[in-house]
């Protein structure tokens, strides 16, 4: 076991839109925490939700054992949003005055917005609302930075880096690199570690 957790369990929600790679991001994070000796429970909603719907992963990090794969109402400690308005949606059910939020600024319009039936809010408004509903919040341009690095998928690793940067989890670069190294070849690993470092710097 690594460092003692500041509470047990620590509850993380990774939220986004189907196709963004949310499930893989939660799995990578879960593997890194398992490698550190913590007991990790992840609840995921995917399947039909994959097709453009909201997708959430609930991560519960504990020193004791398995927890409910669904975090109770008001129980999130950190929300990582791969899409900005998804942060807001999650806070309604799982937020509390102490929650921290890390959100990607890149919007993905729901079909109802594309068709003109619904409005997508201005980013300044989303920032202000999320700030009001959290104890700390960071809005990071992860997708833009990821496109410069070679593709939007690196954005998810940046978001994990940003989460690590908040200090909410006992996650260190070495463990993360070791877990990533087990699943990918060298050049890909280097790009992913660069993404991780950019993410850490984004919340510094």
């Amino acid at each position: 076991m690594g460092t003692r957790l500041w509470k047990d369990p620590v509850n993380i929600i990774i939220t986004g839109v189907g196709g963004q790679g949310n499930v893989l991001a939660s799995r990578i994070l879960g593997n890194a925490l398992t490698a550190k000796g913590y007991s990790v429970t992840i609840g995921e909603t995917f399947g039909a939700s994959q097709r453009g719907g909201s997708v959430m992963s609930h991560l519960r990090v504990s020193e004791k054992g398995a927890w409910s794969p669904q975090i109770p109402r008001g129980g999130a400690d950190v929300v990582v949003a791969l899409e900005p308005v998804e942060a807001l949606r999650v806070l309604v059910r799982y937020g509390n005055p102490g929650v921290k939020v890390v959100a990607n600024t890149r919007s993905i319009y729901p079909v109802g917005v594309i068709s003109g039936e619904q409005n997508y809010p201005a980013m300044e408004d989303v920032r202000a609302w999320v700030a009001e509903l959290s104890s700390a919040s960071w809005f990071v341009d992860a997708t833009d930075a990821a496109m410069r690095l070679g593709g939007p998928i690196y954005g998810n690793i940046m978001m994990i880096g940003a989460l690590a940067g908040t200090g909410a989890l006992p996650l260190d670069r070495g463990t993360f690199e070791a877990v990533m190294a087990a699943t990918m070849p060298g050049p890909k690993l280097a790009a992913n570690m660069e993404a991780y470092d950019i993410g850490v710097a984004m919340v510094a």
């Binding site: 097709r51 807001l88 806070l91």
Partner: peptide
């Protein structure tokens, strides 16, 4: 407060084809 902000600020996401 969260409910009010999400009502206007978080448009629903209907499922759609990729």
């Amino acid at each position: 407060k969260a409910g009010q902000k999400a009502f206007f600020g978080a448009p629903g996401r209907d499922l759609t084809f990729c």
